[in-house]
């Protein structure tokens, strides 16, 4: 007990390394960064369970209504899905590099990479929108516009295909919502970087936004095979 009394919390502030970026509640910048990262990881665990609710339903129905899910999956454009995967992976790469640039304190590089990530994210959303509008024209949107033709059903019961499309729209829609939030977050980071508010000592915000962005990428990594590749594409 004696050594802890010597370094009691009340004695600690005098020895603090003070930095303008340090918030008042933290001892030093390292603790602040640690707490920021840890907080985001805990939040991602929350997000995992959030998506997990839909994934649970997906697994359950997929095993109950496999033919309908396979038929619905074959109605999706696999090439577009693959292209979206590539775009999103590229955005994850530029994001990782952006964090790297922020740590090195290279403002120009950071701005460029953030901008590239945002553009790739918008490209992804554009492709998503194209796909949604195709679905609309095919009259395959459950609830609003669902009148599938017999070729689109591929011999599967109509209700099971509709259920699959419900999942398709819920899951991709929820993912797209997260993408939009992520793009907003990165735009804020870009503005901060533009104003020179991100330094090599204080780049935690970029790092944390990066974690979020990678998480959204990981969700897509699972959505792609789960939605587009059910039952394979061989003839």
């Amino acid at each position: 007990m004696s050594e802890s009394a010597a370094s009691s919390p009340l004695a600690a502030p005098s020895a603090r390394h003070l930095s303008p970026a340090l918030h008042h509640q933290f001892e030093d910048i390292e603790q602040q960064r640690d707490a920021g990262n840890f907080g985001m990881w805990v939040f991602l665990a929350t997000e995992m369970l959030f998506f997990g609710g839909v994934f649970t339903g997906y697994i359950m129905y997929r095993s109950l209504y496999y033919p309908g899910f396979a038929a619905g999956s074959h109605g999706l454009e696999v090439n577009l899905g693959a292209a979206m995967t590539f775009v999103l992976l590229a955005s994850s790469f530029t994001m990782a590099m952006a964090v790297h640039a922020a740590r090195a304190g290279r403002r120009g590089m950071l701005l460029g990479l953030l901008f590239a990530t945002i553009l790739l994210g918008i490209a992804f959303l554009g492709m998503k929108f194209t796909e949604y509008s195709h679905k609309w024209h095919e009259q395959m949107v459950p609830g609003l516009n669902f009148h599938p033709s017999l070729t689109e059903l591929r011999g599967a019961p109509e209700h099971a295909v509709e259920l699959f499309l419900c999942f398709y729209f819920f899951m991709t829609g929820l993912h797209a919502l997260h993408m939009i939030i992520g793009i907003g977050l990165l735009s804020v980071m870009a503005i901060l970087a533009w104003r020179g508010r991100i330094s090599c000592e204080h780049y935690n915000r970029v790092e944390v936004s990066g974690l979020y962005w990678h998480f959204v990428d990981i969700i897509w990594i699972y959505l792609f095979p789960l939605l587009y590749l059910i039952g394979g594409r061989y003839k």
Partner: peptide
């Protein structure tokens, strides 16, 4: 996790 005082 992160903010306990020394000794706590």
């Amino acid at each position: 996790h992160k903010m306990r005082a020394p000794g706590m």
